[in-house]
Amino acid sequence: MRKEIFEPKIVCFACKWCTSAGADLAGTLRFKYKPNGIIIKIMCSSRVDPQHVLWAFKQKADGILIGGCHPGDCHYQNGNLKTMRRVMLLKKLLNDFGVEPERLHLEWISASEGKKFVKTMDNFIEKIRKLGPLK
């Protein structure tokens, strides 16, 4: 009997200025990647509220990818650093909730890094596939 492949559901928060633009570039260059992740475009990665992350896991997201500008490049000076701190905190919190912290991932992807967006997305999807569905 063929085992059904697990297709993880991924929510991707991407800031308008860098990561979402990087994803646009990946499209313009016609790079191909796995379709499991859908982007919610926000102005800055610092808009990601811990409650959004917890909510998404509650709604059975298998993984959450947050993309922001590289340190120093955030359109709003240092929003991305706030995100970084928040993500570190959240990972601890997730452990307490019984969610593997690896299901939350933060990556810096600039507007010119279409390739990096594709790689990050594909690798993350594979990682979550290995972890299996959220329990």
């Binding site: 926000i42 102005m43 800055c44 610092s46 808009r47 509220d49 811990p50 359109h75 709003y76 929003g79």
Partner: peptide, 9 residues
């Protein structure tokens, strides 16, 4: 400027 950092804080 509308980054939203204060909203999530």
């Amino acid at each position: 400027e509308g980054c939203g950092a204060c909203v999530s804080a």
